[in-house]
Design a protein around this nucleic acid. Structure first.
Length: 205
DNA sequence: CATGGGATTGACT
DNA sequence: GTCAATCCCATGC
């Protein structure tokens, strides 16, 4: 169960040091935090219910091949948005972690919608509400996040990630292996809010 | 410079 | 369950 939702304003972002830690730790701690984005004056936000960690030491991470034009943001300072195109079709949102010079990020894979649900429905078409943000490509579509947001500061916006709400109760978190990759498939670096209906498939329970 | 492979989704069988 | 869409960019010749 989620606590009462925060006010529908852009909450202050998490402090800079939050992201300057081991990426797997940040991935777990981001569960329950809030992503917000305003496009065309319309605020949409949701609670993070699923994440995955990626690190340049393992081959599933884009940064594994080193610093390239694509991975510039990944190797940059922590607390920025890494947004890239997936399968030529979708935009995927990540939070850059660990010190500058280390290529690491948390992929935001699913949200439980909080505000702007009507705007999400308009952008997503006729899908069940539980599927508005139940996948990494779905949530960027629902919030209206595009590649131009790559490199943005997650504390200042336009995309912000705010802390867990007051009264937040730590839920049980289910750990699993990452989705859709072919390398380093065994690493248990996927984190999901247990039993939450907005977690993407395949569900780890 | 040509090639091929995705951190996915939705439509269809 | 299968499969196409669609494009950035890393890799290799």
């Amino acid at each position: 169960m989620l606590p009462a939702p925060p006010l529908p304003s852009v909450s202050p972002g998490l402090h800079a040091g939050f992201y300057d830690r081991p990426v797997v730790e940040v991935a777990e701690d981001l569960i329950g935090c809030t992503v917000a984005f305003t496009r065309a004056g319309e605020l949409t936000s949701g609670v993070i219910v699923e994440t995955e960690a990626y690190h340049d030491s393992e081959p599933a991470c884009h940064a594994f091949a080193g610093l390239t034009p694509r991975t510039e943001t990944l190797f940059g300072p922590p607390g920025r948005a890494y947004v890239y195109r997936s399968y030529g079709v979708h935009a995927l949102l990540n939070a850059v972690c660990e010190p500058e010079g280390v290529g690491a990020a948390v992929l935001i894979r699913a949200l439980e919608p909080l505000w702007g649900i009507e705007a999400m429905r308009e952008r997503r078409g006729s899908v069940r509400d539980a599927d508005l943000c139940s996948g990494p490509g779905k949530l960027t579509q629902a919030l209206g996040i595009w590649l131009s947001e790559n490199g943005g500061d997650l504390r200042r916006g336009p995309i912000t990630i705010g802390p867990r709400a007051d009264g937040w109760v730590q839920p049980s978190i289910v750990v699993g292996t990452r989705v859709g990759i072919t390398k380093a498939v065994e690493l248990p670096w996927r984190f999901c809010m247990a039993g939450n209906r907005h977690v993407s498939s395949p569900r780890p329970w």
